[in-house]
């Protein structure tokens, strides 16, 4: 059975693969594989390399994640505290923008690789790339400029500034965020990342209306994509619905693939994207924790039935909860291999 890049490469040329590729968003689960706490796991690049490789061997999915956690962007930009959990992703522990005057103080590193918080991300890409040996795509992760302020000032302050605050401060902040995102994408790509997920939850239909997307978000998506180039970028809603905005997103981004939310309409998304990119349909991985074997298989089948026809489709998950059982992951992957075969 073909695997990983053997499946993806023909898809980028518009051809049908042997089966639908399966993308699993497994992150902190690597700590469990190595019998480490999540904080210990993230303290060493080699732990993540080992955790990712072991999980890919165990579950048989088609990707590796060369990423730490979202809060690492805040660390790179000056946050002194990250709060680790025993059973979930780390959180930003110190917001670096507490008042609007702090936006002036925000400094984007001239050479992003000078930051130890960033250089270990490129080191991780390089090491995983070597381990993958051209078999599995190495995926990296960036938070879009329009959503990055959440990590710097908190979501309520960001929404307040975005919706009711000074446009001058908002634009100044987003310009800095876009500069950071562009540098990050280019450095990750240069390090060898095969695919880079561009996560933009605040620009999703879960958070804003279409007219707000046009007025507030589109410009910054364009800025990020024009600055970094669209090659190997995957537009990801990051937990928000993107299908209602897909035409707008395509106009602003020209990404290679679009990664849907479980509540997005897969059939409509495939029509909207057409030959302009790939579509990834995601299973509801919160329900995956409690579904029976039959329910998991039925859910995978209905996703494949909607997305598989005519190719250009990947099967994916959201940000898989730490406590999903291995058994349920195995059932899902097995069903995806079975129902995803062409």
């Amino acid at each position: 059975m073909k695997h990983g890049l053997e499946l993806l490469e023909p898809m980028f040329q518009g051809k049908l693969p042997e089966r639908v590729p399966v993308i699993l968003n497994l992150f902190e689960q690597g700590a469990n594989e190595l019998n480490l706490s999540i904080e210990e796991y993230y303290s060493d690049v080699d732990h993540i390399v080992e955790g990712q490789v072991r999980m890919a061997e165990k579950f048989g999915h088609d990707n590796l994640w060369a990423t730490f956690y979202a809060a690492i962007d805040a660390e790179t930009l000056g946050s002194k505290k990250t709060i680790f959990s025993d059973d979930g992703p780390p959180n930003v522990g110190q917001l670096i923008i507490r008042q609007y005057a702090d936006v002036d103080e925000l400094t984007i590193p001239g050479n992003i690789n000078d930051s130890p918080f960033f250089s270990k991300q490129t080191e991780l890409v390089k090491k995983l790339k070597k381990k993958a040996a051209g078999r599995l795509p190495v995926c990296a992760y960036v938070v879009a400029s329009f959503s990055l302020p959440v990590l710097l000032m908190g979501i309520d302050r960001w929404l307040t500034l975005l919706l009711t605050g000074s446009s001058v401060i908002r634009e100044a902040l987003l310009a800095k965020c876009s500069e950071f995102v562009i540098k990050k994408i280019m450095a990750l790509r240069e390090a060898g990342a095969d695919m880079i997920a561009y996560a933009n939850p605040i620009a999703s239909a879960t958070f804003i209306k279409a007219h707000q997307f046009d007025k507030l978000a589109a410009k910054w998506i364009s800025s990020d994509f024009k600055g970094a180039g669209s090659r190997n970028l995957v537009y990801f809603g990051g937990g928000g619905k993107i299908e209602p905005f897909l035409e707008r997103i395509i106009d602003s981004s020209d990404a290679g693939a679009y990664y849907l939310n479980p509540f997005d309409d897969i059939v409509s998304a495939k029509v909207k994207v057409g030959p302009r990119g790939l579509v990834t349909g995601a299973i509801n991985d919160i329900k995956l924790m409690s579904w029976s074997s039959g329910q998991i298989r039925a859910e995978v089948k209905q996703i494949m039935d909607k997305g598989k026809p005519n190719g250009g489709f990947l099967f994916g998950t959201q940000m898989m909860p730490y406590k999903i059982s291995d058994k349920n992951i195995h059932i899902m992957v097995k069903a995806a291999h079975e129902y995803g075969r062409y």
């Binding site: 307040t160 919706l163 009711t164 239909a205 879960t206 209306k209 707000q212 209602p244």
Partner: peptide, 13 residues
Amino acid sequence: LDATISQHFIASQ
């Protein structure tokens, strides 16, 4: 079904 978190936030505040 298309109501957004922004609407909830502004209405509430």
